[in-house]
């Protein structure tokens, strides 16, 4: 592996959470603790969707996948403010490490499509880790 790829890989490294942390990471939070996703659409306008778990956040970002976003008047973007997301992950899900990784990685990008891709990569990794941990025990 090239040095720069190793470094890149390191940016996505997440240490294994404890079982208790994993449960919290996979939990669905109550209405008053939800984060919002905004479905932006050229002709239809914006709508705000409450999201209550990392899985929902991932689904939301995945749905309008980056790369397909500019399609004229029916173009659509599912947007979550990256800073709001990292503070939600830290304060509500209690996952400071994931929050920090998101902050660090998105700082390098000024294209939301790339930010969303990075966020999804980290979130999916965290969900997988947590699920494995819980099924192991």
């Amino acid at each position: 592996m090239l040095e720069k790829d190793k470094k890149k890989e390191k940016d996505f490294n997440l240490s294994k959470p404890s079982e208790e942390q994993a449960k919290k990471i996979l939990s669905e939070v109550g209405y008053g603790d939800k984060i919002a996703g905004v479905r932006m659409h050229a002709m239809a306008g914006n709508t705000k969707e409450p999201l209550g778990s990392l899985r929902e956040v991932d689904n939301f970002l995945k749905a309008k996948a980056p790369g397909k976003l500019i399609k004229g008047q029916t173009s659509s973007v599912n947007y979550i403010d990256p800073n709001a997301l990292s503070s939600w992950i830290k304060e509500v899900l209690g996952d400071s490490e994931l929050a920090k990784k998101i902050e660090k990685n998105i700082d390098k990008e000024d294209d939301y499509r790339k930010q969303a891709k990075t966020i999804r990569k980290l979130i999916e990794k965290r969900i997988k880790q947590s699920r494995e941990l819980i099924s192991e025990n």
């Binding site: 209405y31 008053g32 603790d33 939800k34 984060i35 919002a36 905004v38 932006m40 914006n46 705000k48 409450p50 947007y79 403010d81 800073n83 709001a84 503070s87 939600w88 304060e91 509500v92």
Partner: peptide, 14 residues
């Protein structure tokens, strides 16, 4: 802040 108030984390602007 745009949209319905859900939680402090949901009140960002697009």
């Amino acid at each position: 802040s745009w949209g319905p108030e859900i939680s402090p984390h949901a009140n960002y602007e697009v």
